[in-house]
């Protein structure tokens, strides 16, 4: 069988495997969320200031919260199978619409963060490892340690104080300038301008992680026999580092990146909150506190799908990085 055919069969197999995984995630999440005290009606009534018991009973009936749990789960699964994520009673909107509205800002933040963190992490790790125990290595290692240890919210707030309030380079928060409502290219520039500080803040933590990881991975590979062989062959140090060591050292870093994409959705809650970035993390956070279970399940499902998809991509990436690894 050809390589391409093998690969597409592999993808198909993985996708089929993903179905029970995703279903299990839904069921587990559903029951997990039931453990929380109170329901959406309690929250709505509490916010409204007061409500009659009849009104609350009516709401529960409308939301289907008066049904026994297995029935509620059954209804949810049935809707799921017809690609209907249900309805958020709190927002009075279909869950799919709410989630899709937030998906673009989330992806913007995630892709820019991952690119920055993995890209610079690899470069810094490479520089540190190739200049082992010199000042360059020390500076990079100390930088990584400090940014790893600093709480995200503090970094975010300090960025706001320095770059928004003092230097006035960037807006404090939000995704676009709501006093202007730019259109076309101006809007793209405006959003990019708003994206800078959240991305920097969020990537700082991951950047440190990848830098340390890359450095360790490079050092490990450098002591391998194949490096000695390469050196004995008379290859230049440059070629050894970039062609031989780097490719091998990248494997664990890519694995790590794949695993962390999932946690980026959750881990960005703090950054989304500090910079008022309208992402999925904040939406999930608020949904939890308002017991908007349909919405929460929808977000969980989406992030589960995202993680499954990205892990598949990562596994495929392996075989490109290291042709010895075969898919199948």
């Amino acid at each position: 069988m050809s390589q391409a055919g093998k690969r597409s069969r592999y993808v198909l197999k993985r996708l089929l495997h993903a179905i029970p995984v995703v279903l299990a995630i839904i069921v587990v999440n559903f029951f997990l969320l039931q453990l929380a005290e109170g329901d959406a009606v309690d929250v709505l009534a509490g916010e409204a200031g007061s409500a009659t018991p009849e009104y609350m009973a009516q709401l529960r009936e409308k939301f289907g919260l008066d049904q026994p749990l297995p029935v509620q789960l059954g209804v949810y699964m049935k809707n799921m199978l017809s690609f209907d994520l249900g309805y958020s009673f709190r927002h009075d909107m279909p869950v799919s619409q709410l989630v899709l509205d937030r998906l673009v800002p989330t992806l913007l933040l995630m892709v820019s963060t991952i690119t920055l963190a993995v890209g610079f992490g690899i470069i810094l790790g490479l520089v540190a490892a190739s200049n082992l125990n010199t000042w360059k290595d020390n500076v990079i290692s100390i930088f990584a340690l400090i940014s790893y240890a600093t709480p995200l919210f503090w970094v975010g707030l300090m960025m706001i104080v320095v770059f928004s309030l003092k230097l006035r380079w960037f807006p404090t928060s939000g995704m676009e300038n709501v006093a202007m409502f730019y259109e076309g290219w101006d809007r793209v520039k405006d959003i990019a301008h708003h994206l800078v500080m959240p991305t920097l803040t969020l990537s700082l933590f991951y950047l440190a992680l990848y830098t340390r990881f890359m450095r360790a991975s490079m050092l490990e590979q450098a002591s391998m026999d194949y490096v000695t062989t390469a050196r004995a062959k008379g290859l230049t140090e440059r070629r050894i580092v970039f062609v031989h060591i780097l490719r091998n050292a990248l494997l664990p870093v890519v694995t790590m990146a794949g695993v962390q994409v999932g946690s980026l959705i959750g881990g960005s809650v703090i950054v989304e909150s500090v910079f008022a970035w309208p992402g999925l993390g904040m939406l999930a956070f608020e949904a939890l506190f308002s017991r908007d279970l349909n919405l929460l399940l929808g977000i969980f499902l989406l992030s589960a799908l995202l993680v499954v998809a990205i892990n598949l991509v990562v596994d495929l990436l392996y075989s490109f990085l290291d042709p010895r690894i075969e898919v199948g």
């Binding site: 707030l157 706001i160 928004s164 928060s173 909150s273 500090v274 008022a276 904040m282």
Partner: peptide, 15 residues
């Protein structure tokens, strides 16, 4: 704007 400190900063920056 969910974060209280950011609200303060946005007020101070005139946003």
């Amino acid at each position: 704007i969910p974060d209280a400190s950011t609200r303060t900063a946005a007020m101070e920056s005139g946003e």
